[in-house]
Write a protein that binds this DNA or RNA. Structure first.
Lengths: 249, 249
DNA sequence: CGTGACGTTGAAGAAGGTCAACCAATGTGG
DNA sequence: CCACATTGGTTGACCTTCTTCAACGTCACG
């Protein structure tokens, strides 16, 4: 996974001309391998680069004052984990690799040059940030208004859909390394309870989370249990709905 | 409250030159009076204007499939309630007035013209969206990792601080109309439990929520109970920390 | 082949939800 | 100006969900 996949992602929601697309592909970066559970962006740190997840997964970690951790976002391969740092370089949350992860660090300077030269790129990046914001908003609903089983089912559906593995008639399994502790931090539950609820989902034949993969056994039932509706992810946007405010030259 | 207050808000975090400031102040708008509990932006609707809250308060409403409602953001006078609609005109959540509210509707066309002419304005607006996103992120921590008392205390501290009423040594009261049902929707609790917890806060002399005002009796204790730290609001940003990526001409 | 990280299970208790009733304030039509 | 309806606030009794604590199992890796 490289910059091309991020460009594809931008193009799935925004319209960019050839020059603009080339400007994205020409962005310089520095490859960084990060081990699991490592904070590669710390709270309060001022960063001069944005982090594109090339492989693995990244969690955005907040915590309350008793040290109880809360994951407020998960970024998968192809996602820009802290695009907002371009306009807000001081990190308000920490970024931690959930498993061994490859990061492409893209200097802010390069992004700023590109957006200054091509305002439509600024627009596309701003839009990308807003999609993340919409996901965050659903996250609030998830922890605020769903019980444990629905929370976990919803989270699994979201991850599967974002990995392109959602809504299959038959069961699927895809590689994804996540611990029960991380699921607990993402759903606002305790590890013990996550364990019990996962057992329930497994027993009922909805889904199984194993050490290195997630298996969705019955998408229909899982989506129903998690009250999942994928529109908020804005993943399958019809070409005519893709946007550009600025003229195409 | 008018456009000037929104400009002030932008200037508290971004650097804008005179022309850019004038462009903001010159934005056209249409005034709209909205009664409490009225959805003035509905889910799925495509809007062609952004809503600046001139007076009153607005909630961003999501809901799960059982109809349980969750407020994912509260916008106060001086806030732009759906700035993200400029780059994403299809509403992913509903906006509802929490009490009788005055909205200034600013046409997207005007905002787009302004940002196309002055890219630094696009930057400032993008940044403003990201501040809201940071608040949203804390909202996840609030509902995910704090008990009922802390959630309510935190919410009251946030509202007070955003109204410029935070961190006073003596007690203060400020006008703010919110029902216990709305507080329940914002904190992911039930009305009954909100009632009991508010009673506790009142009895312990921390704060009192009345029909038309909120009284903060003891800021110190309330902030402690809510684990409140206002940095995430980015309200008091030193002038030298205010940002501009683009050159100042 | 030990050691640490992760997963699993049981028992007990606390936080919060549910149901149901009642009260207080405001607003409206006759 | 009053009868009545409506909305919002308050309280008690009971029950469910989730947490806490504590122990033990299991897998991977040096």
């Amino acid at each position: 996974v490289s910059i091309q996949s991020y460009l594809n992602r931008l193009l799935s929601r925004s319209v960019l001309n050839d020059d603009e697309q080339r400007a994205i592909l020409a962005l310089p970066y520095q490859r960084l391998e990060v081990r699991g559970n490592y904070d590669f962006v710390r709270l309060g740190e001022t960063v001069d680069h944005a982090c594109l997840v090339a492989d693995g997964a990244v969690g955005r970690f907040d915590q309350n004052m008793n040290g109880a951790r809360q994951i407020t976002a998960i970024h998968l391969a192809g996602d820009m984990a802290d695009l907002q740092s371009v306009v807000q370089p001081k990190a308000t949350t920490a970024l931690q690799a959930l498993s061994p992860t490859t990061i492409l660090r893209i200097p802010h300077v390069a992004l700023r040059e590109a957006t200054a030269r091509f305002p439509a790129l600024a627009e596309a990046l701003w839009r990308d940030c807003m999609v993340d914001s919409g996901i965050l908003s659903q996250w609030v609903v998830n922890v605020g208004r769903r019980d444990a089983r629905a929370r976990l089912a919803h989270l699994l559906c979201e991850i599967a859909t974002r990995r392109g593995m959602g809504a299959r008639p038959a069961g699927v399994a895809f590689p994804f390394a996540v611990t029960q502790a991380q699921l607990a931090d993402a759903t606002g539950l305790t590890i013990v309870h996550v364990n019990r609820v996962l057992k329930g989902l497994r027993m009922d034949g909805l889904a199984a989370v194993r050490r290195h993969e997630i298996e969705i056994s019955d998408w229909e039932k899982l989506a129903e249990a998690g009250e999942f509706d994928d529109t908020y992810l804005q993943i399958t946007m019809a070409p005519e709905d893709r946007l550009r405010i600025l003229p195409l030259d």
